[in-house]
């Protein structure tokens, strides 16, 4: 698969410059972890790559026509649907049994048929992670996916994510170095935003 090349992209929201001539390359089949302080534009970068935000200048190649899958900062689940229904909404080809088995692997067997608005924050998080992992995709974007999970649960989910993303192109936003190590991801540091020099480190 073609690599993703981000060339000299700039992005501002009003007077606030988020990126100024940002360059980075993401090779196919690798897990890249984007790290930066809060407000530095990690989520914006993911949104740009997914086609949810326009750039002010620059160019991006290699992502056109690719299928994306994502875990957003918020769960973005349909509150009126069950866990299984939420997952099958994006993967209608998967049987209920298969989805149920995968939910079981993340400890969600008992709440598979429960409306997600009745689930705890951690359960909802796991459902949204599973939805992203079960969807058919070429590039997976994970925006602080383990936020709100307790340590035991996080270990279990990290292991599951690692198994399912082997050989896949993954862009992963986090503040936690431990998560980067466990997933074996390569780091991208977004830095020097104010000086207008933002490069892949």
């Amino acid at each position: 698969m073609e690599k993703i090349c981000v060339k000299d992209i700039s992005k501002s929201f009003g007077n606030k410059t988020v990126f100024y001539h940002l360059n980075l390359t993401i090779n196919s089949g690798e897990i890249r972890c984007i790290m930066a302080p809060s407000g530095a534009g990690k989520t914006t970068l993911l949104r740009i790559l997914m086609g949810l935000e326009d750039i002010d200048s620059g160019s991006i190649s290699g992502q056109k026509g690719k299928r994306f899958s994502a875990v957003f900062q918020e769960e973005r689940l349909c509150e009126y649907m069950t866990a299984i229904e939420n997952i099958r909404l994006v993967t209608p080809c998967l049987s209920v049994k298969t989805v149920w088995q995968e939910l079981d692997r993340l400890g969600l067997k008992d709440c598979a048929n429960q409306i997600v608005s009745e689930l705890s924050g951690g359960m909802r998080r796991r459902v949204s992670i599973l939805r992203a992992l079960l969807a058919e995709y070429d590039i997976l974007c994970l925006d602080e996916p383990f936020k709100g999970l307790d340590n035991t649960c996080k270990e279990q989910v990290l292991e599951y994510v690692k198994q399912r993303t082997t050989g896949k192109t993954v862009l992963f936003v986090t503040h936690d170095e431990e998560e980067v190590l466990q997933l074996g991801a390569k780091k991208i540091m977004l830095s020097d935003m104010d000086t207008g020099v933002c490069q892949l480190c």
Partner: peptide, 16 residues
């Protein structure tokens, strides 16, 4: 709008 963005990313067909 967040759900619509989710649908856009996952390329859920418009009928669904």
């Amino acid at each position: 709008k967040a759900l619509l963005e989710m649908a856009e990313v996952f390329r859920i067909p418009w009928r669904r």
